[in-house]
Amino acid sequence: MAGVEDAMVTKLLVCLANSYKHGGRCVAGIDPETRTWFRPVSSRLGGEVYERDRQCPVGGEPRLLDRLSVMLSEHCPYEFQRENWLFEDHRLWMNMGRAGWDEACSLAQCPETLWLNGCDSDRGVNNCVPFAQKDEVRDSLKLIHLDEVGIKVSPRLDGWHRVRATFQYGGIEYTLPVTDSEFVERAQTSGTGEYGLGESLLTVSLTGKYKDNNLHKLVAGIVERSRQETGAT
């Protein structure tokens, strides 16, 4: 029997991730009232959200800090990804305006660390968690506030650019791939090299198991204070 948690519900989320995933997107946000993460997922094997699913009648593609009203039909956690909720097919997502920088900062969390550390993969630093330790993980999304972030843009064989974020959190160094769709698309025109961001909010996501038998940490959303204050798109 379905519990109260599984009842259909419409949630207002501050969008904090619109990230590339399996040919679709991973969209996630925080309910500003309960400060709870929600990741609307589809019934597809990977849960990815296609373009037709996520478009809003007003505003189109969800952007970070958009307020999204999404109808969710069932809580469907998968292992440590407890934030997953199945969204109701054929129900339009609604754009209810935008959150400001101060409100977004109020949603930032202060975790001691970004899950387990000490495991690196190629081009990364503290970017993995061994799959064998997945039972020590309790969630898959964190929003952190940083004073500065380094960005590295390097070429890939397919003509696109690889984008990584380097930063320090809790005295620990991290180098993580960036999958924020808008940020990655901007990086394609900026050219390769390294540059810095000022004060920013980062949504860090933990994936399922990769072929290397690790869970991987990704920067799924970047909100730069300077861009919000100037109204840059």
Rank of each mutant, 00 (worst) to 15 (best):
V9Q: 14
V9H: 10
A17L: 00
H22Y: 15
G23C: 04
G24P: 08
C26Y: 05
C26G: 06
A28D: 10
P32G: 05
R35S: 08
W37A: 07
F38I: 05
V41M: 03
S42D: 03
L45C: 09
L45V: 11
V49W: 14
Y50G: 10
D53Q: 09
Q55K: 07
Q55A: 02
G60Q: 07
E61N: 15
E61F: 15
E61I: 12
L68G: 11
M71H: 13
L72D: 11
L72S: 13
C76I: 14
Y78C: 11
Q81Y: 05
Q81S: 11
E83A: 05
W85R: 15
H90C: 10
R91C: 15
W93L: 09
M94P: 01
M96W: 08
A99M: 10
A104H: 08
A104I: 09
S106F: 05
S106H: 12
A108E: 14
A108G: 10
C110R: 13
E112D: 12
T113C: 12
T113K: 12
G124N: 03
V125Q: 08
R138E: 12
D139R: 14
L146G: 05
I151N: 05
K152Q: 09
S154W: 00
P155E: 00
D158Y: 04
W160H: 14
R162H: 10
R162V: 00
R162Q: 13
A165V: 00
T166R: 11
F167T: 01
F167I: 02
Q168I: 12
G170F: 02
G170K: 04
G170A: 03
I172E: 11
Y174T: 00
T175Y: 00
A187M: 15
Q188D: 11
G193K: 01
E194R: 13
G196T: 15
L197H: 12
V204P: 01
V204G: 04
L206I: 04
T207K: 08
G208A: 03
G208M: 07
N214F: 14
H216G: 10
K217F: 09
K217W: 08
V219P: 01
V219R: 02
A220H: 07
G221D: 01
V223W: 01
G231M: 06
A232H: 13
